Computed example of a mutant assay.
Amino acid sequence: MVRLSAFSLSIFTQRLSLLGISLALCCFSVSQLHAAPTKLGAASFETYISDDGEPARINALLEKVFKKAELNIQLQVMRQAFLGSSVLTGKLDGEFAYINLGEDTSNYVLSDVYLPIYLYAVSKDADVEAVKLFPHLKDNRVAIENRFANTPSFRLLKNIKWSRNPTTFDAFRQLADDRAPYLITSQLLARELNTLLANDNEETLHFSAKPLAKTGFQIAISKNVANAKSIVAQFNQTVSLMQDKGELNKPLALAWLSKDVNGDGIADFIGHSSITTASDVLDTAYSLDGKPTSDVSVFYIDGDRYATLEEARAALPAKENTSPRESLLDKTTYQQLLRRW
């Protein structure tokens, strides 16, 4: 007969318990590893969002951020008409390019703005440069995309003759055909059209004196998603660090960004050696936080701080741009528009 002492039985029980805990942790890790991804959707938006091989700055940016943050996120691009209902029915967990222009956000956990959107009035005519407020466009015909027009903020603007358009191309064509003397669009989109026009030796667009509205891209996750807050917190932290190190410049196709990195209330210039060269000018810097730059702004290249532009340029590739950058707008698609310009 085998007799087990109380001592040996106690050790056996402890080891069995430890084995059980280890197995439970292992199973939990495996379940986490194979957990279903968080599904976020967005509608196509020229140069920003696409799933058919066209330039898609937001897709490229977020894929880089999610990988860095070790977040299991799946991006889906769909028609605008299906986006809201897909979130409501649980087919999607949220949106990855949410633009808040007065909508009810109570059902979402929202991230910080990871890319601001500055909406300007643009025109072929230089008189737009005197426009500072929406009332300055009163009684004028103004082209605009439906994604902006169909929001509470714009529906409140009653004294403007809105010419609504389903796509960016249609909105730009309003200007090309002289059917609308003004267009409300994002600064980055207007820049891309100007690049296309300049490369074709056409007169470029003029901008209003300042942006008439400011919003931005956010991720918006349904509050029904159990870990929504932790996803958003990890996303915010990762984005901020990547902005400071210049890791978003290349996905956004922007040589210089600006942001108050050192917390002194003045925006600093952010570049990255993968895209910024010593010949890139500072006046094209795109603001990530809306703060102004000044003579005391410092420079960050690949996350390293430089006190002067000369020092920053010395850390950048010296190659000159031998040819103008191609526009992110497809020239073949816009060829007819260019002929009408």
Results as ranks from 00 to 15, higher is better:
T238R: 04
N72K: 14
V128R: 12
D268R: 14
F82G: 08
T308A: 14
T332H: 11
L252T: 09
T195R: 12
Y306E: 04
N321K: 15
N146K: 09
E95G: 08
A126K: 15
I73N: 04
F96E: 01
R57L: 06
A226M: 06
G53N: 07
E247M: 15
L19C: 11
G94I: 01
Q80D: 14
A233Q: 12
K245N: 13
K39A: 09
F217A: 05
I58G: 03
E46M: 13
I270K: 06
V128G: 09
S294T: 06
L18E: 09
I219F: 12
V77F: 03
A43D: 02
A213Q: 14
D200A: 15
S86N: 14
F134T: 03
K229E: 05
Y114R: 11
W341R: 15
S287F: 05
Y300H: 10
W256E: 00
I231F: 11
A121P: 00
K39S: 08
G263F: 05
G263L: 01
K64Y: 01
E247T: 09
A143W: 02
Q234R: 15
I266E: 04
P116F: 13
M78N: 05
E202D: 10
S86T: 04
K91Q: 07
A233R: 08
N100K: 14
V109K: 11
Q80W: 13
K331C: 13
E54C: 07
V109S: 05
R191Q: 06
F96G: 03
W341K: 14
R147T: 12
I231W: 06
N321R: 15
I21F: 08
S240P: 00
A130V: 03
S240A: 10
T204S: 12
E310A: 15
Q234Y: 04
A318Q: 15
K245G: 07
A130E: 11
A81C: 00
S323I: 15
R179H: 09
R164D: 00
S240I: 04
E202M: 11
A226P: 02
T238Q: 03
P166F: 05
T238I: 03
P166W: 04
K214E: 07
F169V: 00
P135W: 13
F299R: 08
I301H: 13
K158H: 11
I221W: 04
D295G: 14
L62S: 11
I117R: 01
Q336W: 08
T151N: 12
P317I: 00
T167F: 08
S294Y: 01
R155D: 01
A69I: 00
L316N: 03
A220P: 02
Q32G: 04
G102P: 01
S279E: 09
T293C: 10
A220R: 06
W341N: 15
Q32C: 11
A209N: 03
F66A: 06
S31E: 13
K132M: 14
V281M: 14
Q174H: 05
G20A: 15
P55V: 05
V113R: 05
I117T: 01
A226I: 04
T13I: 15
L183D: 10
I266M: 10
F235T: 11
L196V: 03
D125Y: 08
L62W: 08
D260M: 14
L337Q: 12
